[in-house]
Simulated assay, not measured.
Amino acid sequence: MPDLRPALTGPPPYQGRLREAVVAAVEHPTTLVAHSAAGPLVPAIVEALGPAAAATIFVDARLPHPGLSWLESLDGERAARLLEMVADGELPPWNTWFPAEALAADIPDDEVRERFSADLRPTPFALCAEKCPSPTPVFDGLPHAYVRLTPAYDDAADTAERAGWHVVRRDSVHLAPLTRADEVVNALHTIFAG
């Protein structure tokens, strides 16, 4: 998995650099797995991958919201809260957006939580304002699946199910790919087996 943090340095736009960092890391047909806020970037990555994209799996992830920025896709209260956090053109590291006990519930091991938090960087606010691309025929032609880990992503899982995607629902934590990888792997096996 590529380190995407360098793509968020320097001036905007950022989505193109994020896309290119992922594309540079893929050498053969692959299933693209997106977690959380990475979901809306998937259509552009798939387009750039072309035949190297075999399928997509969204894991507790936001779905594409074409023509809208991430900020525009949020409800008004959450958008306002994030706007209040912006300082010097950046949002603070992601772990500070939520109460400390929420992160502790997702990552109960103190040492792992400290290492995770130390790796986080501020997010350029300009990224939050960049419009997301529309899905293309390349994206629409791929098989898609959705793994719902937490109730916060029920609506996304429901939307994916209505679109005919294979949906697997688990009761876990949002950061399960880090702390409960076996649960996520089992959910992925369910998708590939079914």
Rank of each mutant, 00 (worst) to 15 (best):
residue 71 L to Y: 04
residue 75 D to L: 05
residue 119 D to P: 00
residue 64 P to E: 07
residue 107 I to H: 00
residue 113 R to P: 04
residue 98 F to R: 12
residue 102 A to N: 11
residue 123 T to I: 13
residue 109 D to F: 04
residue 127 L to Y: 09
residue 53 A to E: 07
residue 112 V to W: 02
residue 88 D to I: 07
residue 80 A to C: 01
residue 65 H to S: 13
residue 59 V to E: 07
residue 94 W to D: 11
residue 110 D to L: 11
residue 83 L to M: 15
residue 126 A to D: 12
residue 127 L to R: 08
residue 73 S to M: 05
residue 83 L to Y: 08
residue 124 P to N: 12
residue 73 S to T: 08
residue 87 A to W: 06
residue 81 R to S: 14
residue 120 L to R: 09
residue 124 P to W: 00
residue 123 T to A: 10
residue 53 A to G: 03
residue 80 A to F: 00
residue 56 T to C: 14
residue 116 F to I: 03
residue 75 D to Q: 06
residue 67 G to P: 02
residue 69 S to C: 09
residue 95 N to E: 12
residue 44 A to I: 06
residue 128 C to N: 12
residue 70 W to L: 15
residue 111 E to V: 14
residue 51 P to V: 02
residue 57 I to E: 03
residue 92 P to C: 05
residue 78 R to M: 15
residue 69 S to N: 02
residue 104 A to Q: 14
residue 55 A to H: 02
residue 90 E to G: 00
residue 82 L to I: 04
residue 91 L to N: 11
residue 51 P to Q: 05
residue 74 L to D: 07
residue 82 L to W: 10
residue 99 P to G: 07
residue 83 L to T: 13
residue 46 V to K: 04
residue 70 W to D: 10
residue 115 R to L: 11
residue 100 A to R: 15
residue 53 A to C: 08
residue 80 A to L: 02
residue 114 E to P: 01
residue 80 A to G: 06
residue 89 G to E: 10
residue 95 N to W: 14
residue 121 R to D: 05
residue 75 D to C: 09
residue 73 S to K: 03
residue 111 E to L: 13
residue 77 E to C: 00
residue 64 P to K: 05
residue 49 L to H: 00
residue 73 S to I: 02
residue 62 R to W: 09
residue 76 G to T: 15
residue 107 I to L: 12
residue 69 S to R: 04
residue 98 F to N: 09
residue 71 L to P: 03
residue 114 E to W: 01
residue 48 A to M: 03
residue 109 D to S: 05
residue 59 V to M: 07
residue 68 L to K: 14
residue 44 A to C: 05
residue 45 I to R: 00
residue 77 E to R: 12
residue 116 F to R: 01
residue 80 A to Y: 01
residue 104 A to G: 10
residue 128 C to V: 10
residue 113 R to M: 09
residue 117 S to W: 00
residue 123 T to N: 06
residue 73 S to C: 05
residue 90 E to Q: 09
residue 53 A to Q: 09
residue 66 P to A: 14
residue 79 A to M: 06
residue 70 W to N: 09
residue 80 A to W: 01
residue 43 P to G: 10
residue 113 R to W: 07
residue 48 A to R: 13
residue 49 L to I: 01
residue 66 P to T: 08
residue 61 A to I: 06
residue 76 G to Q: 14
residue 116 F to H: 12
residue 94 W to A: 15
residue 69 S to F: 06
residue 97 W to M: 11
residue 58 F to A: 12
residue 114 E to C: 01
residue 77 E to S: 12
residue 95 N to M: 03
residue 109 D to C: 04
residue 121 R to V: 11
residue 71 L to I: 13
residue 95 N to R: 14
residue 77 E to Y: 01
residue 80 A to T: 11
residue 84 E to W: 01
residue 49 L to T: 02
residue 89 G to I: 12
residue 103 L to R: 03
residue 66 P to N: 02
residue 99 P to N: 01
residue 125 F to G: 02
residue 72 E to F: 10
residue 125 F to D: 00
residue 54 A to D: 14
residue 121 R to N: 03
residue 61 A to F: 01
residue 66 P to S: 11
residue 77 E to A: 15
residue 106 D to W: 08
residue 70 W to Y: 13
residue 55 A to S: 15
residue 94 W to G: 06
residue 118 A to F: 11
residue 46 V to L: 07
residue 72 E to N: 12
residue 112 V to Y: 01
